[in-house]
């Protein structure tokens, strides 16, 4: 355990909670999707902080691989959410 591991881990927790609040707050779909992305970034930061072993040692590669796949999945989920939103909006415009 080191000060920087704690510091970055707690930042991850803070980002997650800020994002979670934003995701449930009423507003445009885009804002909420953006907030979910920030919450996701918080989770990634927490995982990488857990993997961190200080500046002199090699970090744990397993959480790194998880975050790498997480980033790509987050992008595709974002794209799907925005496409669904656009579809619903064009539907309601037509009516």
């Amino acid at each position: 355990m080191s000060y920087d591991q704690i510091l970055y881990g707690l930042t991850g927790v803070a980002l997650f909670s800020m994002g979670l609040r934003g995701a449930f707050f009423p507003g445009a779909l885009l804002r909420r999707v953006l907030a979910i992305n920030i919450a996701g970034a918080g989770v990634f930061l927490l995982l990488i902080a857990i993997a961190y072993r200080g500046l002199q040692s090699v970090p744990d590669p397993v959480p790194h691989a998880l975050v790498l796949t997480g980033i790509v999945v987050a992008f595709s989920a974002t794209a799907l959410a925005l496409a669904l939103g656009r579809f619903l909006r064009e539907r309601s415009d037509d009516e």
Binding site: F44, I48, A51, Y52, V67, I71, A74
Partner: peptide, 18 residues
């Protein structure tokens, strides 16, 4: 945090494509 693999992916996907 010594995660260069993720830094590359983040710059390209997280910041760029998203």
């Amino acid at each position: 945090l010594r995660a260069p693999d993720i830094a590359l992916a983040e710059a390209a996907i997280g910041a760029g494509l998203t």
